[in-house]
Design a protein around this nucleic acid. Structure first.
Lengths: 226, 226
DNA sequence: GAAAGAATGTTCAATTTTGTACAATCTGGA
DNA sequence: TCCAGATTGTACAAAATTGAACATTCTTTC
């Protein structure tokens, strides 16, 4: 719901051809989860690939006090857990269902079999992974280098770019704030400044970018360093 | 030189079998660069994969004032530019040679040919990409959630872990500071605190972790949230 | 359509981080 | 060996960020 990593990224399933998408869909077993139910534990060792069929999942970490600090959220067609297979890494995040959610759980063996048969699977995984890395790098750059106002504008614009013309985001400010790594107070202040510049409009649970072109020019002028 | 993203990551070439490594090595043309020479420009559109043969490259962005802000650095066997092929993304960083460096530049066509013939290439790329994503996520988590002292300890420990027992890092504090996204002043303060706890020792251009076990316990106790 | 619950807009003091400065220390080359 | 340049350690004022608080606005549900 809040991390540029996940939202608006072309999903794994989107990148597959129809027949292969079908094969992947039937390679695992679809499991249904209730809102808030735990899907995977941080530290879980069992390898396997999970694909969101319907609903959404939240990726994050449970704090000692039980609060859930979200890192990103994944929608239909997106995968998680692939690094347990291909990079031999443990799971580092807790995954919970956001709303009623169906997950296609594919075992390591079954997925490996498909992976070997259908080259487009590896290509799709590679693409999504590279896009994610790319976004994270851009994001970290922004976090390190830009002041709040610019950082906010840049992240919004990045999301806009990949969203394909959609000008409205359904984010709560507290969520966006954490995604940006700042307090809600700071984000609110930054949004106010961008509002005064006419670059964004804010509403209850949503943020709009009325003139993407103007936003683009502003970001190019204030956020690049060449 | 400073980013957990790059250092200590199993390199792409390491993950290939001998014969395939040979094929990859001879698929492009090796170009030699002098120290500091520009290899790729941010914004460059021409797709292609580059592999470090010898030496090292610095990934970063040139500021308006000519200063170079580094993001990571890549050593022999590591690749860059693969996302121009597989994710259709523009280059977002400037790449320069660190010392005399040889780069194997492989054109998009040649690499695609090899990619189609040898499945292990896609797997190796996938692995390195997933490991990078994973590290970046851990890093961002630390940046967002932990106070300076803990953040520093955690990053140092992460590096230690993957460095394979090496207890000394050849980092200048100003470099490490940027990698962590803070000022040198803050890093210096954090290092002082860790020094007082006996967890690290600092020298001219280097940082040591004398007792990795103690560091591990401390990090586990102070930096995890479960 | 009224009430309860959520989310936003804003303020302000407390805290953290930065920028700047400068002395002290280290390294490598003359 | 000595010097120039680079790096570290540290102090302090300035600036940015946070956390808490509270009024306001919006949504949803009864």
């Amino acid at each position: 719901m809040l991390d540029p990593l996940a939202r608006n990224t072309p999903s794994f399933m989107d990148l597959l051809s129809d027949p292969v998408r079908g094969q992947v869909a039937s390679a695992g077993s679809v499991i249904r989860y209730q809102d808030g139910q735990l899907i995977h534990n941080r530290g879980d060792q069992k390898p396997g690939v999970s694909i969101v069929v319907s609903g959404a999942v939240q990726v994050g970490i449970f704090g000692a006090d039980g609060t859930f600090i979200m890192t990103s959220n994944l929608g239909p067609g997106q995968t998680f857990g692939e690094f347990t297979l291909f990079a031999n890494l443990p799971r580092t995040h807790d995954i919970t269902a956001a709303g009623e959610t169906e997950i296609n759980q594919i075992t390591a063996g079954a997925f490996e079999r498909l992976y070997a048969e259908q080259p487009e699977i590896s290509r799709a995984l590679l693409t999504t992974s590279l896009v994610r890395t790319h976004r994270l790098l851009e994001m970290m750059d922004a976090m390190r280098r830009l002041p709040m106002r610019e950082r906010t504008a840049k992240v919004l614009f990045t999301m806009l770019q990949t969203a394909g013309g959609d000008q409205t985001f359904e984010y709560r400010q507290s969520e966006l704030a954490f995604a940006l790594g700042v307090s809600r107070t700071s984000l609110s202040t930054a949004l106010k400044q961008l509002r005064e510049l006419g670059l964004v409009e804010t509403g209850y649970g949503q943020i709009r970018v009325p003139e993407p072109d103007r936003m683009q020019r502003w970001v190019a002028e204030h956020c690049s360093e060449t």
